[in-house]
């Protein structure tokens, strides 16, 4: 069973509302503040990208569906700060720092470092990890879309592509494994592939059976096709 964020293929969402490039980058001032606050807090170095994603996914389905995009970010950030002990529930309630701040101040992102920090990013490719078990052109089958060690844990195998047959399209080297990294179980890098799925293998009534959906999937999501 997956969580509310895993919505690929879902029915009932209605039309997409294109903006044709007209929408401002941040529609209101607070959208920009949420993005900035989240990015700047990330530079405190107390959680990984995968942990951050997972906490947003753990919003209750009601909140996830009713919150706007930046409300999800804001809720995810507040929950993460508490989970990591950086702020307490009491501080969120009273909005005054009742406990002495942890010694993180020297990690605070400085304005003069913003552009270089954003330009640097953080590669997820690693030298360590197993050799590739599959080669380009080989048929594979995906396993169940679930975190294998933690119930309700993070995974990047979407439910719609669970238990489906596809073909290895590309190999991208070894990358940090989100299912482990989101739960402080180490980076556990493993080979990452692009896998091609024909629309007819994914959908009961594909628009065009020959259309292809490409997913980036880690080696342990895949089994050899029999």
């Amino acid at each position: 069973m997956s969580r509310i964020h895993d919505m690929g293929g879902r029915f009932g969402d209605g039309f997409v509302a294109p903006d044709f490039g007209k929408e401002p980058v941040f529609k209101t001032e607070w959208h920009g503040r949420v993005l900035g606050l989240t990015v700047a807090s990330g530079f405190l170095g107390q959680w990984t990208l995968d942990e951050g994603r997972h906490l947003r996914e753990c919003l209750s389905p009601v909140d996830y569906s009713s919150f706007s995009y930046y409300e999800k970010w804001l809720a995810g950030l507040a929950d993460m700060l508490v989970a990591k002990g950086i702020v307490t529930r009491d501080e969120l309630k009273t909005l005054s720092p009742v406990e002495p701040p942890k010694d993180l101040r020297e990690r605070r992102l400085r304005p003069e470092n913003v552009f270089s920090a954003l330009s640097k990013g953080g590669s997820t490719e690693r030298d360590a990890g197993p050799q590739p078990a599959f080669s380009v052109g080989q048929d594979v089958v995906t396993r169940n879309a679930a975190n294998l060690t933690i119930d309700g844990g993070h995974t990047r195998l979407p439910a719609y592509a669970s238990g489906k047959k596809g073909t290895i399209f590309a190999l991208h080297g070894n990358h940090v494994f989100p299912d482990a990294n989101a739960h402080q179980a180490g980076e556990a890098p493993e080979p990452l592939y692009t896998v091609a799925f024909h629309a007819e293998t994914l959908w009961q009534h594909p628009e065009n059976p020959e259309d292809v959906i490409m997913l980036d999937l880690w080696q342990s999501y895949l089994l050899p096709a029999s």
Binding site: W30, R33, G36, L37, Y70, E71, R108
Partner: peptide, 29 residues
Amino acid sequence: PALRVKALETLLVKKGLIDPKSIDEIINT
């Protein structure tokens, strides 16, 4: 939501973990 982000930003600034000018700079970027 606008008050919510203001509240969290204020708290983190008071704790010395966030420089509001860095947020301005991320938005500007």
